[in-house]
Write a protein that binds this DNA or RNA. Structure first.
Lengths: 255, 255
DNA sequence: CTTGAAAGTTGACTATAATCAAGGCAATAA
DNA sequence: TTATTGCCTTGATTATAGTCAACTTTCAAG
């Protein structure tokens, strides 16, 4: 469930520290000249927890890449209810639609964990998309991946219960690590994980307890120890249309 | 909620009869020569109710455009539970991802109302995407619109109740007609509408009764009469992050 | 017109998650 | 050290939708 397909770089490490924009697959078909321009024109900013990077409705003038820290994308109704769109960590990107379309931000972006964010002016990318056909296709792939991810989440809202959604989230975190089983840390606060999965903190707490009971995982704070991955898969993926391991987990094969 | 942004042609009529592929905005930047080739190479098939157009997992070799009738896109878990991805009517398209990526179908497609479907070989479009930069951008826009639609639906699953989701669905149907208020017909069976909105038929029935009570709409079979649109908007859109009328309703302005 | 099947509705009950409230725990500041 | 704060958990209750069953309506076939 975590936004692997939203453009992750450091797939091997569970919690990448800092990432290099030049390594992002989005730029793999860009020549050195362009990458150099990227490096000089992009803004690198250090952001504090609580800082708002962009407001919904504002004109999109930058494409964003997270070098470190954690960013929450969300919308808000008039009465103040939040709908969290996504929570992104190091290596992930957002505002990709602004690369090819003049648009206004469809969500707010708030820093929930201090870090560094790179802002690339969209004109630069819009120019590249015209000149570099391969880059246009890579943008398409990025958007399509995002689309597929949302399709899956929409399905999960219908078919999976809270505990199963958490299980799926864990499987995706585990997938970012090599090897079988083992221990990992939640990438951010439990409250944030809850909002990311579209549930209340209380529901998350109870559902996590249920997942523990059903699959035998060990939980200590934000540290999760999994002895047997297939236990989670059996419990979680039975309520999903993708058979385990689902193809979108296996992003190394590049579909 | 109905798939307006998924590529609709005959926006002015509530239930378009047959549509012309050449009018689809996806092809607006293609020259006459290409359109002519489209006409000769595409397959036009007549399909019966119940017919399966494609199976999940099959290799994608066609891009589909619905000329008339109704197609259900869905996934299925091992135990047979369905998750309806979308229900498409005349003028709408599917399998757009196959245009730029070799992929396998992420869902099944079943004809739920007899009609005509046009199948365009993806090679033809993959060629065009390389030669025609504007077409590539139009594909990007199509995918991005689909993406935005899903973002909205995901939000609605969290923030709106069943009756509000139906109200939003109605607003979108009304938006396809010109003028204020008036009467429209459901584009397909109530059971299908229910599945499209991710709820059980019983829940739909009850929620529709609730919507009627709350907004004063008149219901007779599949015919819905709305005297005051803003009643629906007030009831429905209060639980949505988009203020009414939301921008994606107003697709004529082309964002 | 009758008949049968499918769609749609309604009622009773259950499952799931949201809400409200209280308390525990851990990190940090005083 | 204690106090404070925010995160997290737990309990009790409520809201919402799902499930199962019975019934009505609609529509098409005969």
């Amino acid at each position: 469930m975590v936004n692997l397909m939203h453009g992750n770089l450091n797939a091997q490490s569970s919690q990448p520290d800092k990432v290099d924009i030049y390594l992002h697959p989005l730029f793999k078909h860009c020549d050195d000249n362009f990458i150099k321009t990227l490096g000089t024109i992009s803004r690198k900013i250090t952001c504090e927890k609580g800082q708002t990077l962009l407001f919904r409705g504002d004109k999109a003038v930058f494409f964003y890449l997270i070098r470190s820290g954690c960013v929450k994308l969300y919308r808000e109704t008039i009465d103040g209810t939040l709908a969290v769109v996504d929570i992104l960590t190091a290596g992930q990107v957002f505002c990709e639609i602004s690369i090819f379309e003049k648009c206004h931000h469809p969500y707010n972006a708030e820093v929930v964990e201090a870090g560094e964010v790179i802002m690339i002016p969209v004109e630069l990318l819009q120019e590249e998309i015209k000149n570099n056909h391969q880059f246009a296709l890579d943008v398409l792939r990025l958007v399509a991946n995002h689309c597929r991810q949302q399709e899956r989440e929409l399905e999960h809202r219908s078919l999976q219960n809270a505990a199963q959604r958490i299980g799926c989230f864990f499987l995706r975190l585990l997938n970012r690590r090599e090897g079988e089983g083992g221990t990992f840390h939640l990438p951010y606060d439990k409250m944030l994980v809850a909002s990311r999965l579209g549930m209340q903190p209380e529901t998350f707490s109870r559902a996590l307890a249920k997942l523990k009971k059903e699959t035998g995982i060990h939980i200590k704070g934000s540290k999760i120890k999994v002895d047997n991955i297939s236990n989670i898969a059996k419990y979680t993926c039975s309520a999903c249309s993708s058979e385990f391991p689902c193809k979108d987990l296996d992003f190394s094969k590049g579909r």
